[in-house]
Amino acid sequence: MLENEVEIKSSSELVKTVEGLKNDGYRYSTMICLKANDGHDLIYIFEKDNKLKNLRYFVKPGEKPKSMSGIYLCALLIENEYQDLFGLTFEGLAIDYKGHLYLTPNSPKSPLA
């Protein structure tokens, strides 16, 4: 558990919370992806007035998380990175490299998964 962390239970709650943070003037810093209980934990990191706020969302196996690039355009690179490295599929990505931001067709698939 990180400092100032909020656990998000559903995809719709995540979108609503991120929209709310943007309206409150939070800057998108980055997102962390890690393996957790057959699925993945996504930790969204936001910053305002030099303080971090973290949202943790558990992605169930087979679930396609919603892209935040429609709210914060800058989310597109990190989401594409996790499509490559963890084999996730983000729905609604502003620019979708379809698993080939870093990886070539001959690369190992989802090397961090």
Partner: peptide, 19 residues
């Protein structure tokens, strides 16, 4: 370590080129 993730500044700045 179980996980190390690094978000570098250039990674944050590249999307600004789209704008």
């Amino acid at each position: 370590l179980e996980r190390l993730k690094i978000r570098t500044p250039t990674f944050a700045n590249i999307p600004s080129l789209l704008l």
